[in-house]
Design a protein around this nucleic acid. Structure first.
Length: 317
DNA sequence: TCCCAGGGAGGAT
DNA sequence: ATCCTCCATGGG
């Protein structure tokens, strides 16, 4: 089978992008559904399974934010089937291209805090993970960690425990490990192989729960928000923030609003006049105020706060 | 050397 | 309910 037949290229026209799009801001905004896509100038490359077939593809934005389309080029392994249609809907879902951002901006244009973020972050979209297990593990890796470090651990985990794929162009890539590959590893060796520190033990424990059927993430995804949270909080290494990260980025529950240190600070400072409120109060506030846009509100406030686009508010401590 | 990073668990108040 | 402290690891 000649290499060319496994290559593909297609476009997602701007008519299929609902509102503005900023691909670079979206991919680089530190979302926890999966390891960050590798950047090359204005393009991003991801490797994942699509209906059991390993796919490597590169996404490039064409046009400005207001009239953006996407160019997708890629290559498959082990198959000569045309996967363009499947990948198109996958990319569209992953990048949240169907989310009606203009209606989000309009609905909260009079919110004096959130609307501050709209100008700089216009086109920022919520990314959805392709795999529930991957989303949960990445969310655990992110706890008390930097984006850079948890991504490094995730990449090391892929290299040591993920399926190795050699594409027809000769490149070697690694797929995010399946729970079966992690369930029987020694947490100590996982720790030394990946630098994930004390997070190794819960990663192994949760992998075992998934393998033996005691944890069904597909079922968790179908539960109402409160029930899903209650179930997730029983898991080791999973607290309120990680549970919300999994639900939002992994399980596409858009009312979940993960509260990390940045969200805690900015919401206390700007919505509660500097008064200290608990993280749970913060999360509930975001859910009640923004409802199905709570995840988006959180994403915009987080990026805005973290990247220093607001005046210093570190006085809240 | 200390502090911090998209926190969580266990314990004391 | 709220407030410690510790937990690995690496960057600043």
């Amino acid at each position: 089978m000649p290499t060319e037949s496994r290559c593909f290229s297609f476009e997602i026209p701007h008519e299929e992008v609902k509102g503005p799009l900023n691909l670079i801001e979206t991919v680089l905004s530190g979302q926890t559904a999966e390891p960050e896509w590798l950047r090359d100038d204005v393009s991003f490359t991801n490797v994942e399974m699509l209906s059991g077939i390993p796919v490597k593809y590169t996404v490039t934005q064409i046009g400005n934010k207001s009239k953006a389309s996407l160019r997708v080029r890629g290559i498959t392994a082990n198959s000569s089937n045309d996967i363009s249609a499947d990948l198109k809907s996958r990319v569209s879902r992953t990048l949240g291209l169907h989310d009606d951002l203009n209606s989000f901006y309009n609905e909260f244009a009079d919110d004096e805090v959130l609307s501050l973020t709209f100008k700089n972050l216009r086109g920022l979209r919520l990314m959805r993970g392709a795999n529930l297990f991957e989303g949960l593990i990445c969310s655990i890796l992110s706890q008390n960690n930097s984006v850079r470090l948890w991504n490094r651990s995730a990449r090391l985990m892929m290299k040591h425990y993920g399926q190795k794929v050699i594409f027809p162009d000769g490149s070697q890539e690694f797929i995010f490990p399946r729970p079966e590959a992690l369930a029987n590893v020694n947490p100590r060796s996982l720790r030394s192989n990946t630098s994930m520190g004390y997070r190794a033990k819960p990663v192994v424990t949760i992998s075992r729960l998934v393998v033996n059927g005691d944890l069904n993430l597909r079922k968790v995804k179908t539960l109402p928000y409160e029930d899903a949270v209650d179930l997730l909080l029983e898991l080791p290494g999973v607290g309120p923030k990680v549970a919300d990260c999994f639900l939002l980025y992994g399980a596409e529950c858009l009312e979940a609003a993960p509260v990390d240190i940045w969200i805690h600070r900015i919401v206390s400072k700007l919505y509660f006049g500097g008064k200290k409120v608990s993280r749970l109060t913060t999360a509930r506030f975001l859910r009640e105020r923004f409802q199905n846009w709570a995840g988006y509100a959180q994403l915009y406030l987080f990026d805005y706060a973290r990247t220093g686009k607001i005046p210093r508010f570190a006085s809240v401590s």
